[in-house]
Nucleic acid binder design. Sequence first.
DNA 1: CCGAATCCACTAAGATACTG
DNA 2: CAGTATCTTAGTGGATTCGG
Lengths: 117, 117
Amino acid sequence: MIDPACPDAIEPVLEILDGKWTLLLLRDLFNGIKRFGELRRSLHPISPKTLTDRLRMLEEKGIVTRTLYPGVPLHVEYELTERGQRLQPIFAAMRAWAQSEGTCPKKEASESLLLKQ
Amino acid sequence: MIDPACPDAIEPVLEILDGKWTLLLLRDLFNGIKRFGELRRSLHPISPKTLTDRLRMLEEKGIVTRTLYPGVPLHVEYELTERGQRLQPIFAAMRAWAQSEGTCPKKEASESLLLKQ
DNA sequence: CCGAATCCACTAAGATACTG
DNA sequence: CAGTATCTTAGTGGATTCGG
């Protein structure tokens, strides 16, 4: 939809980050494997349709993998691919900006968690 | 719209980056002061309404400033604020990802790259 | 439990024409 | 030149229900 003219290209990222919930969804996945229901509760009040839509889109673009464990009840896990993990610096930059603006009351523990990587 | 629950908060950024054209618009502004017409041509085929909407939104959020130079013909300049400039690392992270994916043909290197594989 | 399938509502964005 | 004023369109996202 966007012309992929090259220098300074950020268009590929824009395609992936498109959608109201995508970034929030990725934030959850950066913390590890998640099940559908977990994501749904965490992103509340997202609708199941929207969550499915976003997950499928991310799967198509090679950002997440979907693993089905057959059985009743169903068990499905979503996990970031390598490609998806590499998006984390973008997320980190956003968090850094948000904190530099002091928009957040600023819990001092939040940073030590970040340094774990 | 989005619950500003705090730890790992990226919501303030999401509010700013919202909209189909916002990031592309910011990319232009990172390169310096721009006039309305310049932005319009650069972002073609954006409509004037949309461009105005986005610029006003960014102004409201303290990301850009609008300076009117009276006279005929009209002359208006848009420039990033300090706060807006600090968004650049996010943009840089996106660009880095896009290039690491090799989504871009990479110009003259593409041929030799092809031969090596 | 994890979705698929509908249907609907909302709003960002586009087209177009016009003005200070 | 730099917008504003309308109107229309399209695409998400929400609500709900149902199935494997």
